[in-house]
Design a protein around this nucleic acid. Structure first.
Length: 764
DNA sequence: GACCTGCTGCGGGCTG
């Protein structure tokens, strides 16, 4: 712990050097920097990464928790290499790609002083960086470039001819948050761009992926280097067997006399139907208020609307108790300055702060460590639950604390069986069971990603000012990430884009593909650089200050009252053309709806739910009400006969089919029933069918006795085939093919149908 | 009945 002043001649005398052979491998100025930082030792992951990155040339994945020292594990050896073996010529030496601008800013601050010491320039490049800084970096490319996938895309489209020169001396690409990119549209986009850089340079460039430790890492290897995943070296930080404290509390909606003291009479009015729900929300808020106050915490509320609702309830409780407010909303529609204010309060840890948030605070942004996590309703996935939990109890000897709050409806005579089954509670327990075993959802790499393919076709044509169909196929499909697209399918996509009504591309007399009139328009607008879909929004403004945004689908009229950014507002004016809403403070309000998609439940979670019903184990972390609900759910399971049958007759000549499978298989089975002429809609792990039990059994027998149905034909029955940004330019057949590849699973359907009817067949 | 992410060039007005 004692330290002598830094010295040019003896950098290795620092404490980190004493027990570490890896430290000795680093370049001397890098050692000096570590010494100046007074690090007492290198982290395990850094010890292991240094020799691997310095002495070998393999691609590497470095997996560790947020704030686990991954960035330094990559950059200390990579920069050491850079200062000792400087490549000849101009160009960026290291490329760091991050999906978040905030992360680029964080990394820039962390690398800045080290790189200054090494005399290596570092450049930030994203949408908030000035054009001056970018053109400076472009004129004299060298050192480290920190950039987003979209800004790289813009470089290809606007300066395609400069790309080979800009990256001529590139030694390595570092990809941050690799786990968040695996099978997403944005992940495929990035893979395509990295592959195009290598094609432009005519050589392979080493890749280093930084990832959270989540489940099976094999797919991460395939993502990082699709052509040779086995050659990718994996470094995982050893988990420390950290203690986990969980509590799960149950709340009944519509229970008579259940609330703390009924309506607390603070002037809020709400619809009659919402009143019982609000009583349960008040009870939950009161518990959060009592347990979380005075510390740093995160409350994951599940949706932006519920973030606003709970922040408002918690702020009221603070006001009623005459205490300063310490509960703040944090979600994607809130203005950046407000979000940064909340992040700073959490990180500073000087004033107690609880952020009521969505998955915005699940990502890599550094907010320090929090005391506890609260989760309202079941989380969307086990992977997400694990990431959230990782925000708490990071220091050695401290437990990670998670409080879960589950609401279920009071059961009445005509209750839907799905309410009686207590699905929310059972799902929460199933997810905790899986979390404890270390499992989490793997990515699904089956999708064709035709929307992103359309985007990249336009991008390659723009980059080269025209290209042959053969060259585009070679770049994107044979050598790029669209390897599941064969020449025939590729030709069909080109034919769709070249349709005169679509006009994205056209063909010159010599066969060269060029941008069509519509293609030109798309590529020229800056909105082209991202591949994911976004909705149009209004700006929410008070006295000239933007508080955030609201989707235009939310109907707004003057005098309406709204809860937003945790406070209450009245709408003054709506400017439809400018997409601006002016508001003033008000005493009442209700949270707005933001819209959104449905989440996908994995097969394994549904299977674990069935196990929870069949078991007698009562988890020790349930409170009394949750225990009662668990027992009610298990009783309903037996009363309905779900241990013996999978198809229930319910009122009005309808039936419920319990498939106990994840969203994709359940939806596929529902579509198979629809294709047989029935009206069927997925309901969580079940399917509701407008037909008698006998008709449903007959349909299942039909499915069970045949080969699997055609996935593309099933996709034709889907409600909405336009799910991605460039889907509107494709015809119905290609859309069905794309949907079939991503959201339909048919192979197991006959066996599943047989299983569902088998118990009943045994009896007859 | 869910969440999140990203973006360029240029012209107009103002300051030093």
């Amino acid at each position: 712990m004692t330290s002598s002043p830094p010295s040019d001649s003896e950098p290795a005398a620092g404490a980190a050097g004493q027990a570490s052979s890896s430290f000795g491998l680093l370049a001397r100025p890098v050692q000096r920097w570590i010494w100046q930082k007074q690090w007492r030792e290198l982290r395990d992951i850094q010890e292991r990464a240094i020799p691997l990155l310095l002495k070998e040339d393999a691609d590497v994945i470095i997996a560790a928790a947020t704030a686990g020292g991954k960035t330094e594990a990559a950059f200390l050896p990579l920069l050491s290499r850079l200062v000792t073996h400087k490549r000849e010529g101009r160009g960026f030496d290291l490329l760091y790609v991050s999906p978040l601008k905030a992360l680029i800013n964080d990394q820039f601050r962390r690398l800045d002083d080290l790189c200054e010491l090494l005399e290596v320039p570092v450049h930030r490049w994203h949408g908030d960086v000035s054009a001056v800084a970018k053109s400076k970096a472009r004129r004299d490319p060298a050192g480290v470039l920190l950039i987003t996938p979209e800004s790289l895309e813009a470089l290809f489209v606007l300066r395609g001819l400069e790309v080979p020169g800009l990256f001529a001396s590139l030694d390595c690409v570092v990809i941050d948050e690799l786990h968040a990119m695996l099978d997403t549209e944005r992940g495929i986009h990035l893979r395509s761009i990295l592959s195009r850089i290598e094609i432009a340079l005519g050589r392979q460039v080493r890749r280093v992926g930084l990832s959270a430790t989540l489940g099976d890492m094999r797919l991460a290897r395939t993502y990082l280097r699709p052509a040779s995943p086995d050659s990718v070296r994996l470094l995982e930080s050893k988990s420390e067997g950290q203690e986990l404290k969980i509590q799960l509390r149950g709340y009944l909606v519509g229970a008579t006399g259940g609330g703390p003291e009924g309506d607390s009479g603070n002037g809020e009015t709400s619809g009659d139907q919402a009143a019982p729900e609000l009583a349960a929300d008040r009870e939950i808020s009161l518990h959060l208020f009592e347990r979380l106050r005075g510390l740093q915490n995160l409350v994951f509320a599940g949706s932006r609307q519920r973030v606003e609702l709970y922040t408002d309830l918690l702020r009221q409780l603070s006001e009623d108790a005459k205490l300063p407010n310490e509960f703040y909303a944090h979600h994607a529609n809130l203005a950046r300055d407000h979000r940064e204010f909340v992040e700073q309060r959490l990180k500073g840890a000087r004033e107690p702060t609880t952020a009521v948030c969505t998955s915005t605070l699940e990502l890599g942004i550094d907010i320090g460590e929090v005391e506890s996590i609260a989760q309202i309703g079941p989380p969307f996935s086990v992977a997400s639950m694990r990431q959230r939990l990782g925000r708490s109890g990071r220091r050695a000897g401290k437990a990670a604390i998670m409080r879960m709050y589950v609401k279920e409806r009071a059961i009445e005579a005509e209750s839907n069986p799905l309410d009686a089954l207590r699905l929310q509670l059972i799902q929460s327990i199933a997810m905790v069971n899986l979390l404890v075993t270390g499992w989490c959802e793997p990515p699904n790499p089956q999708a064709l990603h035709l929307s992103t393919l359309v985007h990249q076709i336009l991008s390659v044509i723009a980059e080269r000012g025209g290209a042959s169909a053969r060259a585009v196929f070679e770049i994107l499909c044979r050598r790029g990430p669209f390897s599941a697209v064969d020449p025939d399918l590729f030709t069909e996509v080109l034919r769709n884009l070249g349709d005169p009504d679509v006009a994205l591309i056209e063909q010159a007399p010599d066969g060269t593909l060029l941008l069509g009139a519509m293609g030109e328009r798309l590529v020229e607008h800056y909105s082209f650089y991202s591949v994911f879909m976004t909705q149009e929004e209004y700006r929410f403004v008070e006295k000239g200050h933007t508080l955030g945004t609201l989707p235009v689908t939310f109907m707004l009229v003057p005098d309406m009252t709204i809860v937003f950014s945790g406070r209450r507002w009245r709408v003054l004016v709506v400017h439809d053309r400018e997409k601006v809403i002016e508001v003033a403070a008000d005493a009442s309000g209700t949270p707005p709806k933001f819209g959104g998609d449905i989440g996908d439940l994995h097969d394994r979670v549904a299977a674990e739910m069935l196990e929870v019903y069949r078991s007698n184990i009562v988890p020790p972390y349930l409170d009394q009400k949750a225990c009662d609900m668990l027992s009610e759910g298990r009783q309903a399971f037996l009363r309905l006969g779900l241990d013996r049958t999978s198809v229930l007759a319910i009122e009005n000549e309808r039936a419920l089919v319990f498939a106990w499978r994840g969203t994709i298989v359940t939806e596929s089975l529902a579509l198979a029933l629809v294709s047989l002429g029935l009206k069927a809609s997925p309901r969580h792990i079940a399917i509701e069918v407008n037909a008698s039990r006998r008709e449903v059994m007959e349909a299942l027998r039909e499915i069970g006795n045949h080969l699997p149905p055609d996935a593309v034909e099933l996709a034709e029955y889907m409600q909405n085939l336009l799910r991605s940004k460039y889907h509107p330019y494709l015809g119905r057949q290609l859309l069905a093919l794309d949907a079939a590849s991503e959201r339909i699973s048919v192979e197991g359907l006959p066996d599943l149908a047989k299983t569902l009817i088998s118990a009943d067949d045994d009896k007859s």
